[in-house]
Design a protein around this nucleic acid. Sequence first.
DNA 1: CCTACACAATATGTATACAAAGTGTGCGCA
DNA 2: TGCGCACACTTTGTATACATATTGTGTAGG
Lengths: 234, 234
Amino acid sequence: MKPSPKLTCLKDLRHRILTMDIAPGADLDEVALSDRYAVSRTPLREVLQRLAGEGYVVLLENRGAKVASMDLGTMRTFFQTAPLIYSSMARLAAENRTVQQLGELKSVQAEFTDAVSASDPTTMAMRNHRFHELIGEMADNAYLVPSLSRLLIDHTRLGQVFYRPKAPAESMAVQKACQQHDAMIAAIEDGDSDAVVDITLQHWDLSRDRMERFVRPDPLPLDVADLRERTHAV
Amino acid sequence: MKPSPKLTCLKDLRHRILTMDIAPGADLDEVALSDRYAVSRTPLREVLQRLAGEGYVVLLENRGAKVASMDLGTMRTFFQTAPLIYSSMARLAAENRTVQQLGELKSVQAEFTDAVSASDPTTMAMRNHRFHELIGEMADNAYLVPSLSRLLIDHTRLGQVFYRPKAPAESMAVQKACQQHDAMIAAIEDGDSDAVVDITLQHWDLSRDRMERFVRPDPLPLDVADLRERTHAV
DNA sequence: CCTACACAATATGTATACAAAGTGTGCGCA
DNA sequence: TGCGCACACTTTGTATACATATTGTGTAGG
């Protein structure tokens, strides 16, 4: 039962896009990719079509595929939309989860914790992605899942910075996020909709703070006296 | 500038699925379709992949494509999700619409009114679809649009009954829906978010009532005495 | 020197032939 | 007669060759 090269290609491209190994907005060359994954252009194009359907890439008529970009407009929309979808999904997950899904969620959370301990940012990001994707599956809502998936693509890409803590405060934030995951699992297991929505929104606030700090970091320290001199110098 | 057969195929399949000319759950034969639209299997398969990405069809590994079904679980989710997405989109549309989009919306609404006057159920359904799709475009939210699109697919299919009025009461309902469209346009033009959300929810309630009546119609009139006799007879 | 057009090079889109997987039928055997 | 296996048939998946569109470059003309 070896996995088909096509499926490998699909999953690897998803992975590389989420980890920004392939940058947002980057052009994808069909022949280069079909060469890399040892499939012909026909199935490769089907993979690209599928990735386009999932929101990972955009297809341009007669001008190939490129990775979905993350411009300012996108980000604005992202911050506007995320809490609505995340909280809706959380509520539905608490109502509709199966025991099997709950087990898988715990398993993924354990793996996530391992990655945190190992300080492996990429693995952390991917397992966090899987964690939230699973909550989407639990919600069992075919209409909302596509929205969640698209949000998670950009969340995971934006959140890379989250898992590469520079300052100790950042490291603490990851710890806290991890605890929130545990609390979410508990609330989902209890079927406590209100609790899981509450924790989810806290989780979002934490994540948003980090991301906004990345987008709009603290200004570099200035030496005012020095600045004044430069002004005169010119 | 003649349209490519591929694009014709894509649009026509969408149309036929929405009008249930191709029934929910129906199997799609690649060779039959590629024959019908005069394209080879390669571009046809790309069309199917794209339709799958949009939620019109589902692709089964090594077992072809079938039109997205509308089972009980789907419908339950549909009724649960529609008001959330519709009202969110309405609010965003009022905030983000461009004047050009507003013009197009008015134009589509005029066409819809024409179809109502002409009592052309299929055209009504398709123009109603386009009307709400446009509101999605106005909302300018790449994360929510896929959810709206999927809801509209099922709404349009389910709502066919809406536009084939049997009783005078049904005909009145269509008139009312038409007026609500006008009210939505006015509210969107004014940028009155609260108003458009309010009207949108009323619009949903109207539509939902009709659809639920279809799903769970009034029971057939019984002659109780007669029923009793039958019971004894057995 | 800049612009515009033409042609070459590259990349995408389509058709067709072939391979592989799935499905149904019929025959043999218990 | 019922079950199971094998083989043929149908359908889907992949590779490759060819057609078409886009892009870059070079040259001629203003």
